[in-house]
Design a binder for these strands. Structure first.
Lengths: 132, 132
DNA sequence: TAACACTATGTAATAATATAACATTTACAT
DNA sequence: ATGTAAATGTTATATTATTACATAGTGTTA
């Protein structure tokens, strides 16, 4: 376990918004939603997002340019992220599977590079959408 | 093996440029490089890129918004892509490892979703950079 | 060959995503 | 109280990507 981070004002406002959201949020949608709380500029949002990603409270879904709260309570720093993404409803869920992450970090360790992290995105239809 | 695609004029110009490049290329850098060949607008580039990705001739490196030619001659449609990315020199190399792709597609198949593809990006220091 | 569908192209405008540069303030350890 | 690192505020701008609309090429098949 890492030590608990204290979030700054802006970081907390933005984390709370993302954490409450049922779906990944985009930066400018976040901006729109926090303007009433005094966060007026894109850069304020991006700075908080960068920090929140760095400390593992949120993850960026690279293929969507969107952010979700970490679903895995024990993950304070994200060195190993995996998601499944529905191409129909755009639902994203975080995968937390010890075997998978062991397999992938072992793979990376044995590849010749000095491995620091990975990101994996699966695409397809989620349970709901595939039965439609 | 899939059937061989014939590339259109713009697709061929853009594929050749990416294929010759030693590093991933960004869309506007591609645009700059093909203007002398009559491709003047971003959309012309993005349309060709979309098609080339679709038929598996190139891949998009999502974390970098950049494109590289497929290194794997037998891969005509990219349902399973993996890369290692150097955080220092930004070198990107495609990983083509049958065991890895089997492991990941099996994982996806057993996850409950109707799996169609994945993308995996490893980050760290490449061989050259780690010894500096 | 004419009619059709499909794919690709050309062009202008604009939307969406992200960062640079600079000034100021806050948190907090010494 | 002082130094330092982190965070904030603000303006402007860079970068990445799409919408909308008009036109042209390619290949089938009637």
């Amino acid at each position: 376990m890492q030590k608990q981070q204290t979030l700054s004002r802006n970081q907390k406002i933005i984390f709370d918004l993302i954490d409450k959201s049922q779906e990944p949020m985009k930066a400018y949608s976040i901006l729109f939603n926090v303007q009433k709380k005094g966060i007026k500029a894109p850069l304020q949002v991006y700075r908080a997002l960068d920090k929140l990603v760095e400390i593992g409270k949120i993850h960026k879904i690279e293929s969507r340019n969107a952010f979700i709260a970490c679903q895995n309570s024990s993950c304070q720093i994200s060195k190993a992220t995996a998601f499944s993404i529905c191409e129909s409803c755009e639902n994203v869920s975080e995968i937390s599977n010890t075997k998978l992450s062991k397999y992938l970090s072992n793979f990376a360790e044995s590849s010749g590079m000095k491995y620091s992290k990975y990101n994996l995105e699966f695409f397809g239809l989620c349970k709901k959408c595939k039965s439609k």
